[in-house]
Design a binder for these strands. Structure first.
Lengths: 233, 233
DNA sequence: ACATGTTTTCGATTATAAGGCGAAAACCTA
DNA sequence: TAGGTTTTCGCCTTATAATCGAAAACATGT
């Protein structure tokens, strides 16, 4: 519409990321503990306020560099805008939430006020950050099923059972190793490296090592159910 | 992080909606033609600036009431934040983009500067609005395949071939009526009304009328591929 | 060396969902 | 009543996922 309204109101705008990683067998999120009011001692998502010359994705990447080496962020995607008027008491500040993924073999150096918390056992969180974490978790779980986003959780090489552990931890239920392997293989996302892992001290057949194919290293569109005719693969 | 940065910058924040409808056999979007600079005579998405006391979804619904009767909006969902620093020349204004869907039997009264344009043959658009329209179209197409969002495009009752036309127009390719019916029926989204449509003047067997089930009238999660074990339906 | 236990791998089978095709059904008009 | 048109439905094929169990390949202990 033509701007017949009153003078436009400006808003502060924050960017926040739920950075997820599978570690110690569970899906965890990077949080830092507030030392100042409001919500002192509660746990917050990393992020900060948008600057004048950057877009939101550039901003969250810049701000995460203070917490995690950005090289270790295998995937970043926008979740949505959180805009409840009372989401930050006393101020009006919008926030764009992001999902970030770190491969499970990385252990980035993090500040002392920062820790990885299981998403299924969060400590007391600040503002609406719990909601953002849950949105991120739900998005990850949905996409694990119908895209190849799993590559962003996995190390460069892995055994099928290690990959099964990753998927199981992220999804919250056990998946079958056999089935996982074939589903990913059929989509052309998995290839053997030729090498094999050494068996554990308890013995057992040595597991073959796999990696994601080049084609599997970027998030693809969800596969369609109602395809164009004659498009069977 | 603690706010060691400078004074936070405020931003203007707009909400914009790509309202889509299948009409005259093609997927169309509601646009209005600007009468003022900048981008005079180019076509814009409906929307406006966020107000101090509302959230973004409330804001877009309020602002759309000026263009379309909100009763006719069967579905509204957030797309993402558009934040390129130069997206509006001369000002810094963020925008939250939305997808809106109007059932094909509705013909809402719209202002005289407003018209429905085919998304595949857009006129000259203002700012980054073309990108938002394409994002909306892509989101709709993806969700048509793996959710039941189709209900928001359809009238309360419809024949299978009418539904096929809707899906075909929205997806951009012909889908099989037989298959569409069975895919939706298997998911429990379709039920016969018992009535039948009158055949056209060219004859033919009268088509049975269907409607979406109550369960089919809200957007469900995408169906999972890697399900928990023992969850076969 | 050999038996035993453990873990991985892989083939065989079943289950489920989607795509394609054509015959039969149910209407129109002439 | 005959011919044309559209819808409906069953049957078949293909594609993909889930399950199961046997065989392979290793470690350890005797």
């Amino acid at each position: 519409m033509s701007d017949t309204t009153t003078e436009p109101t400006p808003f502060r705008h924050a960017v926040l990321a739920a950075v997820l990683q599978v570690r110690a067998g569970s899906l965890r999120v990077l949080l830092w503990q507030r030392a100042q009011e409001p919500h002192r001692h509660r746990w917050s998502l990393p992020g900060g306020e948008l600057c004048a010359t950057e877009d939101v994705e550039g901003s969250i990447r810049r701000q995460l560099m203070e917490k995690v080496d950005v090289q270790q962020l295998a995937h970043v995607e926008q979740l949505s805008v959180f805009s409840a008027p009372d989401r930050v008491p006393g101020h009006r500040v919008l926030a764009t939430g992001f999902l970030g993924l770190v491969p499970s073999d990385n252990d980035p150096a993090i500040p002392s006020d920062t820790a990885w918390h299981p998403v299924d056992a969060l400590p007391a969180t600040a503002f609406d950050h719990q909601r953002i974490v849950f949105d991120a978790r739900d998005r990850l779980r949905a996409k694990l099923s119908y895209t190849n986003i799993g590559f962003a959780l996995a190390p460069p090489q892995f055994t099928i059972s290690a990959l099964r552990e990753l998927y199981s931890a992220a999804l919250g239920y056990r998946v079958s190793a056999t089935n996982l392997q074939r589903v990913l293989a059929r989509r052309g996302l998995l290839e053997p490296t030729g090498e094999a892992a050494r068996p554990g001290r308890t013995g057992g057949r040595p597991a073959a090592l796999f990696r994601f194919t080049e084609h599997g290293m970027q998030v693809t569109d969800p596969f369609a159910v109602l395809r164009p005719p004659g498009t069977r693969s």
